[in-house]
Design a protein around this nucleic acid. Sequence first.
DNA 1: CAAACTGCGGAATACGTTTTCCCGGCGTTT
DNA 2: AAACGCCGGGAAAACGTATTCCGCAGTTTG
Lengths: 383, 383
Amino acid sequence: MDEAPPAPVPAADARGSVTLHDVAREAGVSIATASRALNGSARNVRTENASRVRAAAAKLDYRPHPSAQAVARGSTPTVALVVGDVADPYFSAIAAGVTQAAEAAGLVVTMAVAGRSPQRELELVRTLRGQRPRVIVLAGTRIDGTTASTAPKDGRAVDGAAASAAPGDGRAVGGTDTRGALVGELEEYQAAGGRVVMVSQRDLPFDTVTIDNTGGAHRLARALAGAGYRRFAVFRASESVRTSRDRVAGFTAGLRAAGISLDDRFVIETEFTRGGGYEAARKLAERGADEVEIVFAVSDVMAIGAMTAFRDAGLVPGEDIAVAGFDDIDSAIDVTPALTSVAVPLREAGQEAMRLALGGGPAPDAVQISTRVVLRESTPARR
Amino acid sequence: MDEAPPAPVPAADARGSVTLHDVAREAGVSIATASRALNGSARNVRTENASRVRAAAAKLDYRPHPSAQAVARGSTPTVALVVGDVADPYFSAIAAGVTQAAEAAGLVVTMAVAGRSPQRELELVRTLRGQRPRVIVLAGTRIDGTTASTAPKDGRAVDGAAASAAPGDGRAVGGTDTRGALVGELEEYQAAGGRVVMVSQRDLPFDTVTIDNTGGAHRLARALAGAGYRRFAVFRASESVRTSRDRVAGFTAGLRAAGISLDDRFVIETEFTRGGGYEAARKLAERGADEVEIVFAVSDVMAIGAMTAFRDAGLVPGEDIAVAGFDDIDSAIDVTPALTSVAVPLREAGQEAMRLALGGGPAPDAVQISTRVVLRESTPARR
DNA sequence: CAAACTGCGGAATACGTTTTCCCGGCGTTT
DNA sequence: AAACGCCGGGAAAACGTATTCCGCAGTTTG
């Protein structure tokens, strides 16, 4: 495409960029024709003129001004992506998928980080909507804003993030308020022709890509049962963390399908972090872990924390007690023993989100990304 | 701010968004005054008028059209960020820092992923430049051949940069070509008033944030010497990987400062990956590791791979042989034993990049991010 | 053979801002 | 008292592009 040899000296007037006007003059046509020639409009332009315009554009190294195009067209060739935290591998994997698919479609990705705050998320959507992007992708927090009637059992060690999002029973005013505002904002945007896609967030009237947490946990449970395990413990996060809830539900169902029941005494609620996993494991070990053959932690980071805690308590993970996680993060293979987990193709989820956004019709559509069990040394087959 | 009860019906004409014109009419002033009132220009506007405009804007829920502003102003309030791969924690940490600082300054981040290809990187810069961002941040790959070193026209680069092409770096011509084009592109952009910042990339006539690899490695070497270690091995990557080269140089210097010399036989070149570390450790173990007390791998992932290899060979890391890495990635504390490393505050590097971009003068400036040695169980003190 | 129609170029307008320029009022200075 | 700033308002000109509308050929149609 680019011709390297003939020095690409852009005959530049140094101060400003070269505009469509310049191209038109160079090609000896009007800017209308130039515009039509360059981005093939509904109208046709004579082939000879078209090629002259293209030649002029190449010679002058013309680059269209996206903002000007945006003003004229009323929309921008961009995708607005809101994530909780770029540095979190969970989100960055999704972001990678979104970016890849967007770039393939010639769209630029603008990214914003919401932190843990729904408030901030709302602000960002407001700002981004101002940008008139073609698509808004929300890979929001995994926190459930719409806690139904389930009141937290006790106020003990609730995840800080969960606390910020509509805590307590009933509809917390602040929580549902910003949530409603967010939905309203997005609906207006959609009504104005924008596309909205949510990743891993159900129950909203938008296109959605969900992760098959339930199914993956179900299969994991069956696989572990098949490997000979019978006595399980589960480390889970607060009920308000939907991901955790789904995984526990799927896991329990899977066990039940294998004829195994889960003892409530060994279902430990803790934080959705490495520290939470460590804490839960410490408590379990303290209490005597003899009755437990294997621990399922609802995330890999928790599982990894748990393994360390067990080791600190004198138990060898994978020998004295097996451990399984969920997510299949990269370091799952780096820990010793390598961690059994459920792979979540987040990158694909991101790509799928873009596919939904670009291809879909007006009716809200939904796609589920399937997960895959990966057995490793942390859960050796029991004889 | 938002009034919840009195339904925020924005008096909307549903089809378009509300424009500055509407605000002006509502406030009974001209659009010029409205514009001045809203984004405080050099000109003053009477306080009464100003507040009326603000009130009108709030009432109508006015949002400025960034693209239109961009057209009028000639630049966009955005930061263009080019990274190698969002999913890589190295880049996503930098991205997090950049995003944080950018948002604090009211700028939106548009992100693009270059993969490993300098070609693609050039394309992206071309495209992004079209966007007229205020700042372009390049957090490129760490490989020399692709993006770093070798001054394009005058061979002024002394820093061993030129030597980097030595070990069969086949793609010399194509590389420097796209490299020169990239530099040219950025220089034009800069000449037009844009700010360019490179992260972890020296020898280019742009603002730069570098990581103190040399110093960190130097201090690590001294710390390890202080802990009683005397017989070292080093796992390094190809000479063309500048990061590796710097770390090895610093480490060697640090040893020398402690009166220790490094035996060439135990400097093993391998790939800059987990697999490379594994391979090198396997070879070393095979050859008999008795003469070595400790291995320094130039990156944590290599070190982690090496630990696994040692374990597979029957050596217990931290007891039979100590291991130290570099980067202090998250999983450094999750492996057993926890890995001694050098913390690299990448997030800060990203923030610093923005600070450079926003505050700096016209002359290329440079900031070095310092690193910090973190001793852990993989290198117990020798008695 | 006139009339309608088609294909395409160009002038002009629109898009939503910012910014320049002009203008009138008012307080201060000679 | 006239001249001279200064302050702030508004009309209008940018900014760079897409698109509507008009007109001119050349072609088809009745």
